[in-house]
């Protein structure tokens, strides 16, 4: 399967596009349907496609297992860390507009205070969880 020209060429072009589309969904999470979970799944599926085409060893070369596992926890940490911003500003955990953060113009990409920031964490953790789950199941066989 490693030397299938069509598969390799198509995947080389499709995987980056899938990832860009996933990132697009995540960063527009507060504006349009989708968001961290949907976008994260798309990115995760892109990684799964990469593993299916190029093999598990190529994936492991890119990101060793330990690093991947440590990265998985960064998403939730990011989320909780965003929550702490509200506390640092002297308000409740996860406080957004009421902690004085600017909401911006509705509909603009940079609006909604901490909401776009927090969706990044959701997206990262969902994407990596999909990838890790897939790798765990594949490696067990």
């Amino acid at each position: 399967m490693d030397d299938d020209v069509i598969l390799n060429e198509v995947a080389t072009r499709v995987v980056p596009m899938i990832h860009v589309f996933g990132i697009y969904i995540i960063v527009h999470g507060h504006l349009s349907p989708g968001g961290g979970f949907a976008g994260g799944t798309v990115i995760g599926i892109g990684m799964v496609l990469f593993v299916l085409v190029f093999g598990i060893r190529a994936a492991r070369r890119l990101i060793p297992e330990d690093t991947l596992i440590a990265l998985t926890t960064l998403g939730p940490l990011w989320y909780a860390g965003t929550g702490l911003v509200g506390m640092a500003l002297g308000h409740q955990f996860l406080a957004n507009a009421n902690a004085g953060l600017p909401l911006g113009n509705p509909g603009a990409l940079l609006s909604g205070g901490l909401i776009p920031v927090i969706t990044l964490g959701v997206g990262a953790s969902v994407a990596l969880t999909v990838a890790v789950l897939f790798l765990v199941i594949v490696e067990e066989d």
Binding site: D66, T67, I69, A70, T72, T73, P76, L77, A80, G83, M87, G90, H91, Q92, F93
Partner: peptide
């Protein structure tokens, strides 16, 4: 708000953060 006002929350979130940090600590 004083930090003690946050304790009902931080007791949960702090432990949760600890849970997510432990794979990284173990990695290091």
């Amino acid at each position: 708000m004083r930090i003690t006002d946050h304790f009902p929350l931080t007791i949960v979130v702090g432990t949760l953060l600890g849970a997510y940090l432990s794979p990284i600590v173990g990695h290091v």
